[in-house]
Computed example of a mutant assay.
Amino acid sequence: MTATTEAGVTGTSTAVNPVLRIAPASPAAAAAYFGASLAFHADVSDVAAALAAGGDPGFLVLDSRSTESWDQGHVPGAIHLPTALIPEQAEQLLDKSVPVVTYCWGPGCNGATRAALALAELGFQVKEMLGGFEYWAREGFEFETWEGRERRTADPLTAPLDAAHCGC
């Protein structure tokens, strides 16, 4: 790669593109990784669509946050089970034959990951809902609070405003 220095001298650059500093994985390794990722994660739009379709979606949604957080807002129909209580209460509240989708606050919180780990260690099939409650609310899906149901206008940076879905 050639580059021109501040002094106007052209020569070979030793700077490495930060994106390619570590080479991309082979296509086979990438397919294995991304395929596995989809086995571990669901996004809020897919969870909302499955719940809105009516009938049994084939999974349960589990909110792993504190009671105060739950009261502030949660996915309608979700089960409330804080992560710390999973080891002692999950087997009484949940059916191991039904997959569980965990969520916590949002992408900056790994509470849903910790909850998913605790459930998997008990023998439950589990996925983590990417974006958590933050993206549920930001994408404009209805949620419940201790005062009733609410819905916020979708954030145009997280959801299409004039379409039913993003097309991905």
Rank of each mutant, 00 (worst) to 15 (best):
A3M: 08
T4S: 12
E6M: 08
A7E: 15
V9R: 06
A15C: 10
P18C: 08
V19L: 05
R21V: 14
R21N: 09
I22K: 15
A23K: 13
A25C: 06
S26A: 12
P27M: 13
A30C: 04
A30Q: 15
Y33L: 15
F34I: 13
F34K: 15
L38G: 10
A39R: 15
A42W: 04
D43C: 13
V44C: 14
V47I: 13
A48V: 07
A49S: 09
A49G: 10
D56N: 07
G58W: 13
G58P: 09
F59N: 06
F59V: 03
R65K: 08
S66A: 12
E68M: 15
D71S: 14
D71C: 12
H74S: 04
P76G: 13
A78C: 08
P82C: 04
T83Q: 14
A84Q: 10
L85D: 08
I86T: 00
P87K: 09
E88D: 12
E91K: 09
L94P: 07
P99G: 06
V100G: 01
V101T: 02
C104D: 02
W105P: 00
W105T: 09
P107S: 14
C109F: 02
N110W: 05
A112Q: 04
A112C: 02
T113Q: 11
T113E: 14
A118Q: 06
A118D: 01
A118C: 12
F124D: 00
V126W: 00
K127T: 03
K127F: 02
K127W: 10
L130E: 08
G132I: 00
Y135D: 09
W136N: 00
A137F: 03
F141V: 04
F141T: 02
F141N: 07
E142L: 08
E142T: 12
E144H: 04
T145W: 01
W146H: 11
W146P: 10
E147T: 11
E147V: 05
E150I: 10
R151D: 04
D155Q: 02
D155E: 07
T158K: 07
A159T: 05
A159G: 01
D162R: 09
A164D: 14
